[in-house]
Nucleic acid binder design. Structure first.
Length: 474
RNA sequence: CGGGAAAUAGCACAACUUGGUAGUGCACUUGGUUUGGGACCAAGGGGUUGCAGGUUCAAAUCCUGUUUUCCCGACCA
């Protein structure tokens, strides 16, 4: 029953992950470490993510722009914390044949500098504000260890960069984008997330603060899945973004930035997929329905075509598989590709006046009468699958969310079944480092709406300031 | 970046120890028979053995370097 090309998820999670990536033909490795070829199946998922998010951005007043790929060194270095944070992983470019290069350039690791430089020349007055721009692009960070989607050297993302008249408005924007990410993860990707604030140690270099969404993978490892940063005036001071305010005074502008990446595809795999391959939520699956005629009986082919047309007209992306493969092969292929619903149609069905419908998430098969309203049935089945994936992931996240009073308890949990651990924290970075000694457990985020449970830091036992979620990260 | 493993046809492997110019299964192509969980028969096509040097009459095989992948750490998204 199990897919032969895929290592069991419970046996070796890391191997299972790369097996699924390969078996579902999402990417192919290239000759450059950490740079991958997105194959049609993989790129289609990204396109669907883009389409949905892009609409959400535009509905909240954002516009798309495009910035250059290259950043001159002096521009990058204007914001000290940013360059310090990114220095080890910046990819510098040498232009062939060019001698006495006055200045090096790098491939963008992120575009705060480019946006800020641009904003400094176009922002004059409060009447110009706010500017709410986003760009879809690639960035490059020279990582040492790479894994498809989770950590690659070149990756695709969107980065939103906004400029505001007041700190209040900029902070509202930071919150709004975090909520949009949460909405997208939960209602489209069917992945439940925790939201909170990063500690000083974990925040984005150059930000006043960073808000984050954190998801929990099947194996209990957490994944930082999206971040929204409030910059205050840090970048506007470094890049001289000044405007005349309503009192006719020059003031530095307030900025935000926010982004999500192709890493989300990795999250989709590690949250929903199984030993038979990819499992995709209907709202994001490139192919939503696979129709598989069994045998080449004329009535079967005609009926399959008829059903296909009905579903296409109802707005579904279908794949009518007329290839000469055996039915078993087609079933397995639809499964490994994560197609949410599969319709099987053979002469036996025609004789009995039924249609066989299989769902990918539970792998259950059902028959419905040929007279039944198939669109109505599929609509409700798709909803059910979408909900089931979310509820299953949510249940797992809840089961793997623990509380700990001290380091011993954290260690015990992380050594038996890793997950999210809620634990009090005094706010001292040294205590954070102490927790990290346990299998690399880091602070995921500070829960802003919850108070410390016991009142004492899990490390030093001094008075706790925050309730923090701790976890092992990808 | 440190420690370990690997790289031979699209994939999984064999041949390497003991140097003599590469083979099997699946996949692919063509024809036919099939079709309810990865079909069968027949005939075909495809590899300067990751790349670059070295040793040798001769290198997939021995030596050196390098690149990529995987695992464990450290670092980081």
């Amino acid at each position: 029953m199990k897919n032969k090309a895929i290592t069991s998820r419970d046996l070796d999670f890391a191997k299972w992950y790369t097996d699924v990536v390969k078996a579902a033909k999402l990417v192919e490795y290239s000759n450059v470490k950490g740079c991958m070829v997105f194959e049609p199946n993989g790129y289609a998922i990204w396109e669907n993510i883009q389409t949905t998010l892009d609409k959400m951005f535009k509905q909240t007043g954002h516009k798309n722009v495009y910035m250059p790929l290259l950043i001159p060194e002096n521009l990058l270095k204007k914001e000290a914390e940013l360059i310090e944070g990114f220095a080890p992983e910046v990819a510098w470019v040498t232009i062939g044949g060019q001698k006495n290069l006055e200045e090096r350039m790098c491939i963008r690791p992120t575009s705060e500098t480019l946006f800020s430089d641009y904003y400094s020349s176009v922002v004059k007055s409060y009447r110009d504000l706010p500017l709410k721009y986003n760009q879809w692009c690639n960035v490059m960070r020279w990582e040492k260890e790479t894994r498809p989607f989770l950590r690659s050297r070149e990756f695709l993302w969107q980065e939103g960069h906004t400029v505001h008249e007041t700190s209040k408005e900029a902070e509202e924007e930071t919150r709004l984008m975090l909520e949009i990410y949460k909405d997208f993860f939960e209602n489209y990707l069917a992945i439940p997330v925790l939201t909170g604030k990063k500690t000083e140690k974990e925040k984005f270099a150059g930000a006043e603060y960073t808000l984050t969404i954190e998801a929990l993978m099947y194996n209990g490892v957490s994944l930082q899945s999206g971040t929204s940063h409030y910059f205050g005036q840090k970048f506007s001071k470094a890049y001289d973004i000044k405007f005349l305010n309503r009192n006719n005074e020059l003031e530095y502008a307030y900025q935000t930035s926010w982004g999500v990446t192709t890493r989300m595809i990795g999250a989709l795999i590690m949250v929903h997929s199984d030993d038979n391959g990819l499992v995709l939520p209907p709202k994001i699956a490139p192919t939503q329905i696979s129709i598989i005629p069994i045998g080449n009986n004329e009535n079967v082919i005609n009926k399959a075509n008829e059903i296909n047309n009905i579903l296409i007209n109802a707005g579904y992306i279908t794949n009518l598989d007329m290839s000469d493969k055996s039915p078993g092969f087609k079933f397995a292929e639809a499964e490994v590709n994560g197609v949410p619903v599969r319709i099987e149609l053979g002469s036996r069905d025609i004789e009995n006046n039924v249609i066989t419908i299989a769902r990918r998430d539970t792998r259950e098969k059902n028959t419905i009468s040929i007279d039944e309203d198939i669109v109505k049935y599929i609509n409700s089945l798709m909803n059910e699958i979408q909900n089931n994936l979310f509820e299953t992931a949510k249940k797992r996240m809840n089961e793997k969310t623990f509380t700990a009073k001290n380091l011993d308890e954290i260690e015990k949990i992380m050594n038996t079944q890793p997950g999210f651990i809620k634990g009090d924290w005094c706010g001292d970075e040294n205590c954070e480092l102490k927790v990290k000694e346990i299998r690399g457990t880091k602070s995921r985020c500070i829960l802003e709406n919850e108070k410390p449970i016991y009142g004492k830091c899990v490390v030093c036992e001094k008075e706790a300031k925050h309730l923090v979620v701790w976890g092992i990260q990808y």
